[in-house]
Protein backbone atom coordinates (compact mmCIF):
# COMPACT_ATOMS: atom_id res chain seq x y z
CA UNK A 1 0.00 0.00 0.00
CA UNK A 2 2.87 2.38 0.80
CA UNK A 3 4.19 2.05 -2.76
CA UNK A 4 0.71 2.65 -4.17
CA UNK A 5 0.46 5.86 -2.14
CA UNK A 6 3.75 7.07 -3.56
CA UNK A 7 2.66 6.22 -7.07
CA UNK A 8 -1.00 7.23 -7.17
CA UNK A 9 -1.51 9.86 -4.45
CA UNK A 10 -0.60 13.51 -4.53
CA UNK A 11 1.69 14.52 -1.67
CA UNK A 12 -1.05 16.23 0.33
CA UNK A 13 -1.97 13.69 2.98
CA UNK A 14 -3.41 13.56 5.64
CA UNK A 15 -6.82 13.90 4.06
CA UNK A 16 -9.67 16.00 5.49
CA UNK A 17 -12.04 13.13 6.26
CA UNK A 18 -13.14 12.68 9.88
CA UNK A 19 -11.54 10.10 12.20
CA UNK A 20 -12.86 6.66 11.24
CA UNK A 21 -14.50 7.76 7.97
CA UNK A 22 -14.54 4.90 5.47
CA UNK A 23 -13.87 7.12 2.45
CA UNK A 24 -10.12 6.56 2.79
CA UNK A 25 -10.64 2.79 2.56
CA UNK A 26 -12.86 3.08 -0.52
CA UNK A 27 -10.42 5.49 -2.21
CA UNK A 28 -7.56 3.06 -1.62
CA UNK A 29 -9.75 0.28 -3.08
CA UNK A 30 -10.16 2.32 -6.27
CA UNK A 31 -6.38 2.82 -6.44
CA UNK A 32 -5.77 -0.90 -5.85
CA UNK A 33 -8.25 -1.75 -8.64
CA UNK A 34 -6.48 0.66 -11.03
CA UNK A 35 -3.13 -0.87 -10.09
CA UNK A 36 -4.49 -4.40 -10.49
CA UNK A 37 -5.61 -3.62 -14.04
CA UNK A 38 -2.37 -1.76 -14.78
CA UNK A 39 -4.17 1.26 -16.23
CA UNK A 40 -2.00 4.01 -17.69
CA UNK A 41 -1.98 6.89 -15.20
CA UNK A 42 -1.99 9.41 -18.05
CA UNK A 43 -4.94 7.71 -19.72
CA UNK A 44 -7.12 7.58 -16.64
CA UNK A 45 -9.39 10.45 -15.67
CA UNK A 46 -11.14 10.80 -12.34
CA UNK A 47 -14.19 13.04 -12.18
CA UNK A 48 -16.02 13.83 -8.97
CA UNK A 49 -18.91 16.00 -7.87
CA UNK A 50 -19.16 17.78 -4.54
CA UNK A 51 -19.26 16.30 -1.07
CA UNK A 52 -17.11 14.30 1.30
CA UNK A 53 -16.60 11.46 -1.18
CA UNK A 54 -15.83 13.80 -4.04
CA UNK A 55 -12.83 15.19 -2.19
CA UNK A 56 -11.09 11.94 -3.15
CA UNK A 57 -10.22 13.22 -6.64
CA UNK A 58 -8.03 15.92 -5.08
CA UNK A 59 -5.78 13.33 -3.44
CA UNK A 60 -5.29 11.17 -6.51
CA UNK A 61 -2.51 11.78 -9.01
CA UNK A 62 -4.40 11.37 -12.28
CA UNK A 63 -6.04 13.89 -14.55
CA UNK A 64 -8.85 14.84 -12.20
CA UNK A 65 -11.85 17.13 -12.32
CA UNK A 66 -13.59 18.19 -9.11
CA UNK A 67 -16.76 19.30 -10.86
CA UNK A 68 -20.14 20.74 -9.84
CA UNK A 69 -22.55 19.37 -7.27
CA UNK A 70 -24.35 16.42 -8.86
CA UNK A 71 -22.83 17.15 -12.25
CA UNK A 72 -19.90 14.75 -12.26
CA UNK A 73 -21.64 12.48 -14.78
CA UNK A 74 -22.27 15.13 -17.48
CA UNK A 75 -18.62 16.26 -17.18
CA UNK A 76 -17.44 12.66 -17.38
CA UNK A 77 -19.73 12.01 -20.38
CA UNK A 78 -18.13 14.97 -22.18
CA UNK A 79 -14.61 13.74 -21.44
CA UNK A 80 -15.43 10.20 -22.58
CA UNK A 81 -17.05 11.40 -25.81
CA UNK A 82 -14.12 13.72 -26.57
CA UNK A 83 -11.65 10.83 -26.20
CA UNK A 84 -13.20 7.37 -25.89
CA UNK A 85 -9.70 5.92 -25.33
CA UNK A 86 -9.61 7.33 -21.80
CA UNK A 87 -10.63 5.33 -18.74
CA UNK A 88 -13.09 7.61 -17.02
CA UNK A 89 -13.89 6.89 -13.38
CA UNK A 90 -16.52 8.91 -11.55
CA UNK A 91 -16.44 9.34 -7.78
CA UNK A 92 -19.71 10.48 -6.28
CA UNK A 93 -21.62 10.22 -3.04
CA UNK A 94 -25.16 9.29 -2.06
CA UNK A 95 -26.38 12.89 -1.91
CA UNK A 96 -24.35 14.09 -4.90
CA UNK A 97 -25.20 11.15 -7.14
CA UNK A 98 -28.80 10.36 -6.24
CA UNK A 99 -30.37 13.66 -5.10
CA UNK A 100 -28.82 16.63 -6.88
CA UNK A 101 -27.46 14.44 -9.66
CA UNK A 102 -30.28 11.89 -9.66
CA UNK A 103 -31.54 12.81 -13.09
CA UNK A 104 -28.06 12.77 -14.61
CA UNK A 105 -27.54 9.40 -12.99
CA UNK A 106 -30.52 7.66 -14.59
CA UNK A 107 -29.91 9.15 -18.01
CA UNK A 108 -26.21 8.28 -18.04
CA UNK A 109 -27.18 4.74 -17.11
CA UNK A 110 -29.79 4.71 -19.89
CA UNK A 111 -27.17 5.83 -22.41
CA UNK A 112 -24.85 2.99 -21.39
CA UNK A 113 -21.73 5.06 -21.88
CA UNK A 114 -18.52 3.36 -20.79
CA UNK A 115 -18.01 5.09 -17.42
CA UNK A 116 -17.34 3.52 -14.04
CA UNK A 117 -19.22 5.18 -11.22
CA UNK A 118 -18.09 4.54 -7.66
CA UNK A 119 -20.88 5.77 -5.40
CA UNK A 120 -19.69 6.19 -1.81
CA UNK A 121 -22.80 5.47 0.24
CA UNK A 122 -22.44 6.83 3.77
CA UNK A 123 -26.22 7.36 4.16
CA UNK A 124 -25.92 11.09 4.94
CA UNK A 125 -24.69 14.49 3.74
CA UNK A 126 -21.60 14.60 5.91
CA UNK A 127 -19.80 17.71 4.70
CA UNK A 128 -22.72 20.03 5.38
CA UNK A 129 -23.41 18.64 8.83
CA UNK A 130 -25.64 15.56 8.60
CA UNK A 131 -28.75 16.26 6.50
CA UNK A 132 -30.61 13.17 5.25
CA UNK A 133 -30.07 12.02 1.68
CA UNK A 134 -32.14 9.75 -0.61
CA UNK A 135 -30.09 6.82 0.70
CA UNK A 136 -30.67 7.51 4.40
CA UNK A 137 -32.62 4.53 5.77
CA UNK A 138 -36.21 5.25 6.86
CA UNK A 139 -36.63 6.42 10.49
CA UNK A 140 -32.96 7.41 10.81
CA UNK A 141 -32.19 10.63 12.59
CA UNK A 142 -30.51 13.49 10.76
CA UNK A 143 -29.98 17.19 11.37
CA UNK A 144 -32.95 17.86 9.10
CA UNK A 145 -34.99 14.99 10.60
CA UNK A 146 -34.62 15.17 14.39
CA UNK A 147 -37.58 12.76 14.81
CA UNK A 148 -36.40 10.39 12.10
CA UNK A 149 -36.80 10.40 8.31
CA UNK A 150 -40.19 9.50 6.87
CA UNK A 151 -39.04 8.83 3.33
CA UNK A 152 -38.11 5.44 1.99
CA UNK A 153 -34.53 5.12 0.75
CA UNK A 154 -33.58 4.33 -2.82
CA UNK A 155 -32.05 0.97 -3.56
CA UNK A 156 -29.45 2.53 -5.82
CA UNK A 157 -28.42 -0.79 -7.36
CA UNK A 158 -32.02 -1.56 -8.38
CA UNK A 159 -32.43 2.01 -9.66
CA UNK A 160 -29.31 1.71 -11.82
CA UNK A 161 -30.44 -1.66 -13.15
CA UNK A 162 -33.90 -0.34 -14.01
CA UNK A 163 -32.38 2.74 -15.67
CA UNK A 164 -30.30 0.53 -17.97
CA UNK A 165 -26.87 0.17 -16.34
CA UNK A 166 -25.13 -2.91 -17.69
CA UNK A 167 -22.92 -3.60 -14.66
CA UNK A 168 -24.12 -3.12 -11.10
CA UNK A 169 -22.18 -4.21 -8.04
CA UNK A 170 -22.01 -3.46 -4.35
CA UNK A 171 -19.14 -3.67 -1.89
CA UNK A 172 -18.39 -2.43 1.58
CA UNK A 173 -15.47 -0.69 3.27
CA UNK A 174 -15.20 -3.76 5.53
CA UNK A 175 -14.98 -6.28 2.67
CA UNK A 176 -12.44 -4.06 0.91
CA UNK A 177 -10.74 -6.88 -1.03
CA UNK A 178 -14.03 -7.75 -2.66
CA UNK A 179 -14.60 -4.04 -3.31
CA UNK A 180 -11.30 -3.93 -5.24
CA UNK A 181 -12.43 -6.89 -7.35
CA UNK A 182 -15.85 -5.46 -8.20
CA UNK A 183 -14.37 -2.04 -9.03
CA UNK A 184 -11.75 -3.66 -11.29
CA UNK A 185 -14.48 -5.68 -13.04
CA UNK A 186 -16.55 -2.49 -13.41
CA UNK A 187 -13.65 -0.63 -15.04
CA UNK A 188 -13.05 -3.55 -17.43
CA UNK A 189 -16.76 -3.74 -18.33
CA UNK A 190 -17.69 -2.10 -21.63
CA UNK A 191 -20.67 0.02 -20.66
CA UNK A 192 -22.08 1.98 -17.74
CA UNK A 193 -20.90 0.43 -14.49
CA UNK A 194 -22.13 1.34 -11.03
CA UNK A 195 -20.33 0.19 -7.91
CA UNK A 196 -22.06 1.14 -4.68
CA UNK A 197 -19.42 1.30 -1.95
CA UNK A 198 -21.10 1.10 1.44
CA UNK A 199 -19.01 3.12 3.85
CA UNK A 200 -19.35 4.42 7.39
CA UNK A 201 -19.86 7.97 8.58
CA UNK A 202 -19.30 7.63 12.34
CA UNK A 203 -19.51 11.36 13.01
CA UNK A 204 -22.65 12.63 11.28
CA UNK A 205 -24.64 9.45 10.69
CA UNK A 206 -23.32 7.10 13.37
CA UNK A 207 -23.41 9.50 16.28
CA UNK A 208 -26.96 10.75 15.62
CA UNK A 209 -28.23 7.20 15.19
CA UNK A 210 -26.25 5.59 18.01
CA UNK A 211 -24.39 3.25 15.65
CA UNK A 212 -21.21 3.32 17.71
CA UNK A 213 -17.73 4.27 16.57
CA UNK A 214 -16.04 3.48 13.26
CA UNK A 215 -15.06 -0.03 14.39
CA UNK A 216 -18.64 -0.82 15.44
CA UNK A 217 -19.98 0.46 12.11
CA UNK A 218 -17.46 -1.69 10.21
CA UNK A 219 -18.62 -4.69 12.25
CA UNK A 220 -22.23 -3.85 11.33
CA UNK A 221 -21.22 -3.97 7.66
CA UNK A 222 -19.56 -7.35 8.29
CA UNK A 223 -22.68 -8.72 10.00
CA UNK A 224 -25.25 -7.40 7.52
CA UNK A 225 -23.52 -7.91 4.19
CA UNK A 226 -24.45 -11.16 2.44
CA UNK A 227 -22.81 -12.25 -0.80
CA UNK A 228 -25.09 -12.76 -3.79
CA UNK A 229 -24.29 -16.49 -3.75
CA UNK A 230 -25.17 -16.87 -0.06
CA UNK A 231 -28.34 -14.77 -0.42
CA UNK A 232 -29.72 -17.23 -3.00
CA UNK A 233 -29.80 -19.94 -0.33
CA UNK A 234 -31.44 -17.74 2.31
CA UNK A 235 -35.15 -17.22 3.01
CA UNK A 236 -36.70 -13.71 2.92
CA UNK A 237 -36.96 -13.83 6.73
CA UNK A 238 -33.23 -14.53 7.03
CA UNK A 239 -32.48 -11.67 4.63
CA UNK A 240 -34.48 -9.18 6.73
CA UNK A 241 -32.24 -6.17 7.47
CA UNK A 242 -29.36 -7.54 5.38
CA UNK A 243 -28.01 -6.32 2.06
CA UNK A 244 -26.34 -8.20 -0.77
CA UNK A 245 -22.80 -7.58 -1.96
CA UNK A 246 -20.99 -8.70 -5.08
CA UNK A 247 -21.93 -8.42 -8.74
CA UNK A 248 -25.68 -7.83 -8.69
CA UNK A 249 -26.36 -7.38 -12.39
CA UNK A 250 -24.47 -7.78 -15.64
CA UNK A 251 -25.84 -7.50 -19.16
CA UNK A 252 -24.83 -6.58 -22.69
CA UNK A 253 -26.06 -3.51 -24.58
CA UNK A 254 -24.62 -1.24 -27.31
CA UNK A 255 -22.08 1.17 -25.83
CA UNK A 256 -22.74 4.88 -26.45
CA UNK A 257 -19.32 6.12 -27.68
CA UNK A 258 -19.17 3.25 -30.20
CA UNK A 259 -22.70 4.03 -31.38
CA UNK A 260 -21.74 7.70 -31.65
CA UNK A 261 -18.67 6.84 -33.76
CA UNK A 262 -21.09 5.09 -36.10
CA UNK A 263 -23.05 8.33 -36.44
CA UNK A 264 -19.83 10.26 -37.18
CA UNK A 265 -18.83 7.71 -39.82
CA UNK A 266 -22.26 7.83 -41.48
CA UNK A 267 -22.34 11.63 -41.48
CA UNK A 268 -18.83 11.88 -42.99
CA UNK A 269 -19.75 9.37 -45.69
CA UNK A 270 -22.83 11.43 -46.59
CA UNK A 271 -20.79 14.64 -46.79
CA UNK A 272 -18.39 13.24 -49.39
Amino acid sequence: MEKLIEKYYRPRLPHIWCPGCGNGIVTSSIVKAIDKLGLDQDKTVIVSGIGCSSRASGYLDFDTVHSLHGRALPVATGIKLADPELNVIVITGDGDGTAIGGNHFIHTARRNINLTVILFNNNIYGMTGGQFSPLTPTASKATTAPYGTLERAFDIAELAKAAGATYVARGTAFQSKMLVDVIAEGISHDGFSLVEAVTQCPIYFGRQNKKGDASAMLKTQRDNAVTVEAAKKMTPEQLEGKFTIGVLHKSEAPEYTKQYQGVIDRAQKGAK
Partner: peptide
Amino acid sequence: CEMRCPDYAIFVE
Protein backbone atom coordinates in the same frame (compact mmCIF):
# COMPACT_ATOMS: atom_id res chain seq x y z
CA CYS B 1 -4.57 -2.76 10.24
CA GLU B 2 -3.03 -1.68 6.95
CA MET B 3 -6.11 -2.78 5.00
CA ARG B 4 -8.60 -1.09 7.34
CA CYS B 5 -6.74 2.12 8.24
CA PRO B 6 -8.76 4.90 6.59
CA ASP B 7 -5.90 7.37 7.02
CA TYR B 8 -2.94 5.45 5.54
CA ALA B 9 -1.11 5.73 8.84
CA ILE B 10 0.13 2.15 9.29
CA PHE B 11 2.04 -0.17 7.00
CA VAL B 12 3.24 -3.68 7.72
CA GLU B 13 6.14 -5.07 5.77
